[in-house]
Design a protein around this nucleic acid. Structure first.
Lengths: 205, 205
DNA sequence: CGTTGAACTCAACGCCTGTTGACCTTCCGA
DNA sequence: TCGGAAGGTCAACAGGCGTTGAGTTCAACG
């Protein structure tokens, strides 16, 4: 027995979905503990795997977080579908697509992960900012033909972010329990106003 | 020279406000880096002091964080003053009071610290919910004579929370750099619509 | 059948963390 | 005048962190 290993190493037989297992464990860890709180070793342990394998798959902790972000935030891209259609119903379609995404159970868990991670680490803030800018605000402001498109997109983003925080994370009533359709009907017109209305002028009920 | 120290140790002459210096440094650190990101050594360095002294004063990192939170207390309550005055300008006064509080440098630092604490414990979430409910939503919904007052207040709260997240914490442009007066002029009418408008009807630019 | 590369483990690296205990120096009250 | 107590430094601890590199095992392809 000169250099014989313990034989636990090496590739496993069959098609192991280890990568996905790790990703799930990482999602749960980031959700429960935040970016800094979650550790590579802990995630590896939860996935019943060596920490080095996590590095092997995702390169680094940052890479892993980005992968979680990409997987969790990927549904955000679905929101972009709201852009198809005439200008007039834009605000309404935006809020409906947005709510659709958040109401899906696993999706909302993933997105909550992202938001939670924000509170603990500043590096996560940079990551999320980049993603929001690229995946949501960019396409949105690109589609708008009104002036000050980035501002309009930012206002919508701020309103939607606040809605998520209130409804899905803090669960403040009565917003949290409100019927999605009703909420969309209420918020849609305001988004529309931000998108195409006269900024700084009263919406005039 | 058996055990002679470098003579840098020992009590400093005069009345040194070292404790407060440390508290300030800690506030800044927690704000900029989050709980885990901020380090005892870093805080000590910023206060030009040894890390052990921080422990000496506050017991532990947890104790220091709690001290920072306790020092901040309740600038939120100042927002409640918006309620004085006629109904018509309510939305406008709400956003202006809200921005006033957040624009004050030390206040915003402290509030952001609290927000960051959210991820630490679910009790922090309860704390914030209580704060929001008591200081903003309560007075607001109590004052409104329209129907569905809690819902209206909740909508305003959601919008404002999103604004804080976007402007002060994530610092997403162009919202972050927007002139406060302009921002108030833009958002005020929408708040007003939530407060007294026809919910679910278009604001009709 | 041989080779290549992907999957996987193991041991170790260097770094940074919060905390401790010993020690020193000044202030203040008895 | 003298003795705590309070303010302050220093060196070191033990442990956790992300990451690395070498090594092993398996699957797939020519």
């Amino acid at each position: 027995m000169t250099t014989t290993r313990k034989s636990t190493a090496g590739r496993r037989p069959g098609d192991s979905g280890t990568r996905e297992t790790i990703l799930d464990a990482a999602t749960a860890a980031f959700l429960g503990l935040g970016y800094d709180g979650a550790t590579m070793r802990g995630i590896a342990r939860a996935a019943d795997v060596d920490a080095a394998l996590v590095v092997h798959f995702f390169g680094s902790k940052d890479g892993l977080f980005k992968a979680v972000l990409a997987a969790g935030v990927d549904p955000i891209r679905r929101i972009a579908a709201f852009a198809d259609g005439p200008d007039e119903g834009l605000g309404d379609r935006l809020i409906r697509h947005y709510l659709d995404v958040w109401e899906a159970p696993d999706t909302s868990a993933r997105m909550t992960t992202v938001l939670r991670a924000l509170a603990l680490s500043s590096s996560a803030v940079e990551l999320l900012k980049g993603f929001i800018g690229e995946a949501v605000l960019g396409p949105l402001s690109g589609r708008l033909n009104a002036d000050e498109a980035p501002l309009r997109a930012g206002l919508c983003g701020a309103h939607l972010a606040g809605l998520s925080l209130t409804r899905y994370i803090l669960k403040v009533e009565p917003i949290a329990s409100l019927d999605p359709g009703r909420l969309a009907a209420i918020v849609g017109p305001c988004l529309q106003h931000y998108l195409s209305g006269e900024l700084g002028e009263p919406p005039a009920t």
